[in-house]
Simulated scan of single mutants.
Amino acid sequence: MSAPDKNELLAQAVRLREQGHPEQARERLLSLTADYPDAVDVAYHTAWVHDVLGLEAEAVPYYERCLQGDALREEDRRGALLGLGSTYRVLGRFGQAVETLRRGVAEFPDDGALRTFLSMALFNTGEHHEAMQILLRLVAETSGSPGVQRYRTAIEHYATDLNETM
């Protein structure tokens, strides 16, 4: 019987995380990272498990590694940009959070989660006007609330300039 390959070992570690065993997943992922230091998918899941465990500072280098180049699958790249931006924000590195999340929104403009986290980071940097613009547009576009939809045109209008009173 042959030894499991990288993809099989990675899948096992991801399952451990998903099943509520993040410490065990972390141990396996750190071992995989040592064996496959250039594997962006391993770096991504290693970052993720560190975030799950509240080890944000330890997650950063793995997020940064997995985002170098364009080898990461699209959905994982989206998650890594959100994860890194959010992690920077949690660590108080607000400028880096904004930069990372802007890059995410540029690559994935329809992703409401990226836009939401960008608005939070913008709030933290004192860019309240832009933060509100993003959130108001997101609410107008995505809300299923009949009241919001009834006033969608007004909400979108005010999103461009909150100081205007019509």
Rank of each mutant, 00 (worst) to 15 (best):
A71P: 02
Q96V: 00
Y44R: 01
G69M: 04
V90M: 14
A121Y: 02
V105C: 10
V52P: 02
E23G: 08
F123D: 15
A47H: 04
P22G: 06
A57S: 13
G126I: 09
R65G: 00
E18V: 04
F108L: 11
E99T: 11
N124I: 00
D111S: 05
L30T: 09
A97N: 05
F117S: 10
A106V: 09
E64A: 07
T100K: 07
L16I: 02
M120W: 13
G92K: 08
V98Q: 03
G54P: 11
Q19M: 05
V105P: 06
A43N: 07
A97L: 12
V14F: 02
R17P: 03
E74H: 05
A43R: 08
A39V: 02
V42E: 06
D35I: 00
Y36Q: 06
F94V: 13
L82E: 06
S86W: 13
R26N: 07
H45N: 15
D35K: 14
Q96Y: 04
E74L: 11
A57F: 01
H45V: 02
G79K: 04
A80Q: 05
V49Y: 03
D110S: 14
R28G: 11
L32H: 06
H50F: 15
Q12I: 05
Y63W: 13
Y88C: 05
D41P: 01
E130P: 05
L30I: 12
Q12M: 02
L9I: 03
R15C: 00
L114G: 06
E127Q: 14
L30C: 10
L82F: 12
S86L: 02
F123A: 08
E99I: 00
T100D: 08
D38L: 02
L10Q: 03
T100P: 05
V42T: 09
L30A: 06
H128T: 15
Q24E: 15
H50C: 10
D41M: 06
W48V: 15
L53T: 12
L118W: 08
R26M: 14
D51I: 00
Q24G: 10
G104F: 05
P22K: 03
L122W: 04
R89I: 01
A25F: 05
L16N: 01
D51P: 00
H128L: 13
E107M: 12
V14R: 04
R28N: 11
T100Y: 10
L67Y: 04
Q68G: 11
G104R: 03
A47Y: 07
T46E: 01
H21P: 00
L30Y: 04
F108G: 09
P22I: 10
A47F: 09
Y36M: 03
Q12L: 02
A43H: 09
F94D: 13
